[in-house]
C-alpha cells in the first residue's frame, strides 16, 4: 500500500524528502541542528534485544530437530521411547555401523556418489557448451532454443513424470544408472543454461578473439580460454546442481525400482517404511544422520560458496 507511492519518490529522493510523509508532522518540524541520537540509540537497544531474541529462537527451531536426530541415533531403542529428549546413556555408534552395512545405507551412498558424480560432470559440460553458444553466436533459431531451455524451469516436473517413465522404459533405461544420469542432466539443463548464458555474456570477448587470431580452434578456445575464465560461474552453478542432484527424490523414486540400485534419499525412505515396522528406530535415526552429516559437513566448509551458489539464480 505504501509502496505504491514510493517508487516515484525514492529514486530521486534526497535524504530529507522521503520521511516527512511517514513521520508525524510534529516530529518532522524539528530544528535542523537537532540530533535524535538519543532516541535512535534507545530504540536501537530495544530492537537489538528483540532481534537477537527472535533470531536465537529461529536458530533453535532449526537446530533442535537436527540435534534431536543425532542424539537419537546414538541411543538404544528403549531410550528413544522412554526419554525422547534425554541424553544417551552411552554413545551407541554401533547403530551407525548397523545402518551403514546391514541396512545398506553404505551401498545407497556409493550409488548416489556414482550417479551424481557422472551427472554433475555431464551437466556442467553440456550446460556450458550450450550456454556458450547461446551467449556468443548468432544463428537462426537461437532465441527459440534459449527459451526452450529456460522455459523448462517453470514447468512442474510432475507433469512430465508419467510419460518420462515410459520413454525410459522404451529405451530400456529404467533401473539403470546411466539412464538416471541422463535424466538428471536433462532436468538440470534449464537452470544451468539460463545461469551460464548470462554469465558468458558478462565475460570480455577480447581474450577469445586474441586466442583465435593466434590460431586456436573454436573448440580449443572454449575449453582452454573460456571455461577457465568462467570458473566462478561454473562453481556457483556446480554447487547448485550438486545439491539438487544429491537431494533428488522424486525422479529416482519413479525411475529406479531395483532395490540394489537405490540412491540415498530413496533408500532411506524405503528403510524407514520397513524399519518402523520392525521397530529398529535407532538404526533408522542412524541412517538419517549418516545421510545428513556429509552434506552438512560440506556445507559448513564451503558455506560462503554454497549460499552464493544457491541464491545466485534468484538474484539475477
Amino acid at each position: 500500500m505504501t509502496a505504491q507511492a514510493q517508487p516515484s519518490e525514492l529514486p530521486g529522493a534526497t535524504k530529507t524528502e522521503e520521511a516527512p510523509g511517514a513521520a508525524p508532522p510534529a516530529k518532522g518540524q524539528r530544528p535542523p541542528h537537532f540530533t535524535p541520537e538519543g532516541r535512535i540509540s534507545s530504540e536501537g537497544k530495544v530492537l537489538n534485544v528483540f532481534s537477537h531474541g527472535m533470531l536465537v529462537l529461529w536458530g533453535l527451531l532449526v537446530t533442535l530437530p537436527l540435534l534431536w536426530a543425532v542424539m537419537s541415533s546414538l541411543k538404544t531403542d528403549k531410550e528413544i521411547f522412554t526419554s525422547p529428549w534425554g541424553l544417551p546413556s552411552s554413545l551407541h555408534f554401533d547403530n551407525w555401523s548397523r545402518a551403514w552395512s546391514k541396512s545398506n545405507i553404505g551401498d545407497f551412498f556409493l550409488n548416489t556418489v556414482l550417479v551424481v558424480g557422472c551427472s554433475l560432470i555431464g551437466t556442467m559440460l553440456l550446460g556450458s557448451m550450450a550456454a556458450y553458444v547461446l551467449a556468443r553466436f548468432e544463428f537462426p533459431g537461437k532465441r527459440f532454443v534459449y527459451f526452450l531451455f529456460v522455459g523448462g524451469m517453470s514447468f512442474p516436473v510432475i507433469l512430465a513424470l508419467v510419460p518420462l517413465f515410459f520413454v525410459m522404459r522404451n529405451m530400456s533405461l529404467l533401473n539403470t544408472f546411466h539412464g538416471l544420469v541422463l535424466v538428471y542432466i536433462a532436468y538440470s539443463l534449464p537452470f544451468t543454461v539460463f545461469f551460464l548464458t548470462s554469465f558468458f555474456k558478462t565475460l570480455p570477448t577480447s581474450v577469445a578473439e586474441a586466442a583465435m587470431l593466434d590460431g586456436a580452434s573454436q573448440t580449443r578456445t572454449f575449453f582452454q580460454v573460456m571455461l577457465p575464465m568462467a570458473k566462478p560461474g561454473l562453481i556457483s552453478v556446480g554447487i547448485f546442481n550438486f545439491l539438487g542432484q544429491w537431494n533428488q527424490y522424486m525422479l529416482p523414486t519413479v525411475l529406479i525400482t531395483d532395490e540394489k540400485k537405490r540412491v540415498l534419499t530413496q533408500g532411506l525412505v524405503q528403510l524407514a517404511a520397513s524399519q518402523q515396522y520392525k521397530g529398529d528406530w535407532s538404526a533408522l535415526f542412524a541412517g538419517l544422520v549418516l545421510a545428513m552429516l556429509p552434506v552438512l559437513g560440506v556445507y559448513i566448509v564451503f558455506q560462503r560458496q554454497v549460499q552464493a551458489g544457491l541464491t545466485a539464480g534468484a538474484l539475477k
Partner: peptide, 27 residues
C-alpha cells in the same frame, strides 16, 4: 545455521519431521 535445512534433501527433512511428529516417541 538458518541455511542448514536448505542443503538437506526434502526426503531427509520429511523423514526427520515424520519422526518428530510421531505421537509416541516424537520430539
Amino acid at each position: 545455521v538458518y541455511f542448514f535445512p536448505q542443503v538437506l534433501s526434502i526426503a531427509i527433512v520429511a523423514l526427520l519431521f515424520q519422526f518428530t511428529y510421531n505421537p509416541r516417541n516424537g520430539a
